[in-house]
Design a protein around this nucleic acid. Sequence first.
DNA 1: ACCGCACCCTGAGCGC
DNA 2: TGCGCTCAGGGTGCGG
Length: 291
Amino acid sequence: MPELPEVEVTRRRIAPAMVGRTVRSVRTTANSYFFVTPPGRLRARLAGRRLAGLTRSGKYLLAHTEDGSRLLLHLGMTGQLFSSDATSPRLLSATARAALEPDAQLDFRPDRHTHLRLAFDDGGPEVYLRDVRKFGKVQWLAPGEPCERLDRLGTDALEVTGSHLFEASRGRKVAVKSFLLDQSVVAGTGNIYADEALFHAGVRPTRAAGRVPRRSYEAIADATKRVMLRSIETGGSSISDYVAPDGSDGGYQDERRVYARTGSPCRACGTAIRRKVIGQRSAHYCPACQR
DNA sequence: ACCGCACCCTGAGCGC
DNA sequence: TGCGCTCAGGGTGCGG
């Protein structure tokens, strides 16, 4: 599931394949709620544009055109933004994978989940946006057009501070885990990094956000930034579908302490990691290290 | 204002 | 073999 580190790694690695190139043609799948901007209009707006930059806000990517228009992309749960040169078993379904010879590298062919295909006028590699569950979003923003999704976002997780979290949490009764997932408080944190940051800060995810002391929020803010920067360094977490734009896996899944490690021994103290549903999401924590 | 929950979607994995 | 069920979850919107 792409969170800030995966989106940032995607941004850095796909940028060379987008920025400075002119879109020649756009192909999309049929209209669905995945397309905030209907696909017909999207194709018309995008064709012929030269892309001038690629930025990130929280978990959103923004491709900027020379005239100030923006293409807003969200990868949702299963979104993959990659070059047509990429090969990875993660770009195939399990049945397609099973049909592969052990060491075969099957080139990716756009399938029914490939919702956006950008071809460029230099005839080079295309850029694909694939999203099996369609929890992602694509939206066209005209120059100056306001965007509620972006305006709602709080402090970017890479810049979050303990005082910001402390002040925003006063009076809040939700579990601190749910509080950290609120994108209007911190933008970019998702289920994996919220669990990991709480582990490193030694805070139990079930605690009411409003009752977590300032010093713990300092630790949570530090841990959030440290964990995310390290994940970016290692190429993100390839836990289910995430794959970098060149098809390579990330490495941070090997460094995680609690996420999806239910029943395994805590790497710090050996106690079995527990899983508990908080706010309709799985939370993972060490009952001994996190109080 | 805040909180809990349903909903959007598809594939994997499981029990029968 | 195959069916039906459950689970995974980011973000939005609604009712209490």
